[in-house]
Design a protein around this nucleic acid. Structure first.
Lengths: 285, 285
DNA sequence: TATTCCGATAGTGAC
DNA sequence: GTCACTATCGGAATGAG
């Protein structure tokens, strides 16, 4: 019945460093349907298409330490300049922000710390340090605004709550951002946190939309890792010594729709189909 | 790495009714490498290729009762004349012998009874009738000779025990069958029996080589159904009332090579690979 | 819990 | 156990020279 789709190159539709122009602050949100650019909706990949067999991004030309398998994220903090703007969203002295190579939502960034004292600690341990935690929270807040801006760019044209802002945009071009209606609160659609048991050894904070709409969202564990207490918000850290999330298992639990609460048991295929409809409704809010 | 093979039509390499010429007795064995005919090794199918979606053989042109699913074998005994010689090996008033549509060994026939009083009974019940059992045993003995003859035709050229017979054949052509050396005892390579819990409702006796070498041999239950007490030899019938085979489960047991006894656990893929080598060695005996 | 490949396991539907 | 189809579940390897 369904024909196999040839996947496009991965990351075509992601935030780029060019857009950020090397700054550490989010650029003003690009508005939908105004200026076609690298963000423009192209042929979104129907299947994940990583560059090679390794989880890590393609190695740059150096012969420095090899980052493979669980160390795959190390390459980004070691030499962010070696990667293209479709991989690196921005970087500064302390952080590197990348597009997740296998995004599990329509927008999915990773905040990586370049602090070599913390980088390889378990997040629960790394964030026992209050100063480090505060710095990461501050940076994560910026990343959250970035993700919100990208959500507006990608989905704003479909959103009812964006209509007044959209109409104002259309009325005065180039727009005066300050005078615009606030529009939809996209930040409230963004989740920020760490996995209770990360598979990648380098510290990474997920900052992603809650839609769970992505061709890379393909397994129950993918879904549950962002929709159960397995995802620990930065605000909850440091964890109390007896916090159940230190040891509890969440990934094998039933699949429950994040939007309507319906339980799909172990049937990922059914949930996946359902999420298509939820996504359409969600972006129309 | 491995290229997909386009499967040939199923049954090209099976015993045909033409060869039997409508008789109820096995024809003299066709000798290998002498007369190319329907038995000649052609492009043996690498993957099973049944005619349609249904388990039953292709329906003839009648609009008589539909035989599908578990009733699929009924069509053969109801109207054997409707099928081609590649499907029907021979038929007479009381029996129909067919090539199994999904042979699990290099030669695999089914003996079907046309007795409508017995046809739909469980084999353990049908064979409580001593006269019926005797008739089926007698016919099965004929079928066993047929299978043995086919094994000689297909594998004789590779067999060391056949050499003297082969050389004699080559010396006087056309051959005088009576004066030939006996050659390999192919009948000892043939198994005859019924499944303890058949999936097809019409009574059928399996008569097949023990090599288990066939592209249709694809699952653990396939293998164990012929290589555990799940296969009940006709000689063991009728079963004692307390015989464990009436209720025991055998199909989920570990896979054990019929030839060397090696245990492959639940790994069908490993057994399958192993059987390739065993088949080559076996036919060279 | 990184992905990918392969394979084992499980339920369904066939008319 | 008839098949075929889909999907879930389970382990092992994974870079690079």
């Amino acid at each position: 019945m369904s024909s196999q789709q040839r996947p496009g190159e991965h990351g075509e539709d992601a935030i780029t460093e060019e857009e950020m122009a090397g700054t550490t602050m989010p650029a003003p949100a690009a508005e939908p349907s105004k200026r076609p650019n690298a963000f423009t909706e192209l042929m979104a990949p129907k299947k994940p298409k990583p560059p090679t067999h390794t989880t890590a991004a393609p190695k740059p030309h150096s012969r420095a330490p090899v980052f493979a398998g669980r160390d795959g994220l190390g390459a980004y903090t070691a030499s962010p300049q070696s990667y293209g703007p479709d991989r690196i969203v921005y970087h500064n002295e302390h952080f590197v922000v990348i597009n997740d190579l296998y995004p599990k939502s329509s927008v999915h960034l990773l905040l990586l710390s370049r602090n070599t004292r913390k980088q390889l600690l378990h997040p629960f341990d790394a964030f026992e340090d209050a100063a480090f935690l505060a710095a990461c929270r501050a940076e994560a807040a910026k990343v959250k605004k970035l993700v919100a801006a990208e959500l507006r760019r990608k989905h704003g044209a479909y959103s009812a709550s964006e209509k007044a802002r959209r109409d104002a945009m259309d009325a005065n071009d180039p727009p005066d951002t300050d005078g615009l209606p606030a529009g939809r609160d996209w930040e409230s659609e963004v989740k920020t946190g760490v996995h209770a048991h990360p598979s990648m050894d380098h510290l990474h904070v997920h900052v992603l939309a809650r839609d769970m709409h992505s061709p890379c969202m393909r397994h129950r564990k993918h879904y549950n890792s962002f929709n159960t207490p397995f995802l620990v918000p930065l605000e909850d850290l440091p964890l109390a010594p007896n916090d159940v999330r230190r040891h509890a298992r969440y990934l094998d639990e039933d699949l429950v729709c994040w939007r309507c609460g319906r339980n799909f048991g172990k049937s990922f295929a059914k949930l996946k189909e359902h999420l298509e409809g939820e996504f359409e409704a969600w972006r129309k809010e």
